[in-house]
């Protein structure tokens, strides 16, 4: 009982648990747990045969956190920054530490700009972005979209309605703006 010093009783005894659960108590002794203690010196260095790794060539100026002393010896080379989003990213890394909200908010803003830069760029290619195939939304019909949601007491069913707005909304808005722009230009030309 909580309001006295006794621990509340458990529904099953140790013997019952051992009989019901395969492996119950196999790691009862903390010495058998691989992450105890938290800091454990690794004598074999997990296969590494260097004190400090050889440096990977820097093929373009690689953005880095100003909390680092230098560019780390190894780094990812996916998607170098470019365009307006790249400028925003470079500025964010150059100006703000990881401790500043501005750093992360600028990077998030750059992500949105990056998406639109790439959507627009894709229209000049043989494979323009297609929100129907790229969202996989057609699987709603082949993978029980209705029966997976309704009558299931799911806490997320309400805000699922927001997802199409988030995905399609900017496309509809951009389409509308493009249509208005073209119409206004044609009108001006006719005058």
């Amino acid at each position: 009982m909580t309001y006295t010093s006794d621990k509340p009783p458990l529904p099953e005894t140790t013997e019952q648990l051992r009989a019901r659960i395969p492996g119950w108590g196999a790691d009862l002794d903390p010495k058998d747990r691989p992450s105890v203690p938290k800091l454990r010196w690794q004598e074999d260095r997990t296969g590494a045969h260097w004190d400090f790794p050889e440096r990977q060539p820097e093929r373009w100026p690689r953005e880095r956190s100003i909390e680092h002393a230098f560019l780390t010896p190894v780094f990812g080379t996916s998607c170098p920054p470019r365009g307006v989003s790249g400028a925003l990213r470079r500025f964010s890394y150059r100006r703000f530490s990881e401790g500043r909200a501005a750093h992360w908010l600028l990077l998030l803003a750059a992500d949105r700009v990056d998406a639109w830069e790439n959507h627009l760029r894709s229209f000049a290619t043989a494979r323009p972005d297609n929100p129907i195939t790229e969202t996989g939304v057609l699987s709603e019909f082949s993978r029980h979209g209705f029966s997976s949601r309704f009558g299931k007491k799911r806490a997320d069913a309400g805000h699922h309605l927001l997802d199409p707005v988030i995905v399609a909304g900017p496309w509809v808005l951009a389409g509308g703006l493009a249509y208005s722009g073209v119409r206004a230009a044609l009108r001006r030309r006719r005058r």
């Binding site: 010196w41 690794q42 260095r45 956190s65 780390t72 190894v74 890394y93």
Partner: peptide
């Protein structure tokens, strides 16, 4: 992704390796 020899890897904190992520510490 981890180097095996930085301060963190030497103490088995491979997920906190300091030599592989220039973008964040």
């Amino acid at each position: 992704i981890f180097c095996g020899t930085c301060w963190f890897c030497a103490r088995s904190l491979y997920s906190n390796c300091h030599n592989v992520n220039p973008n964040a510490t």
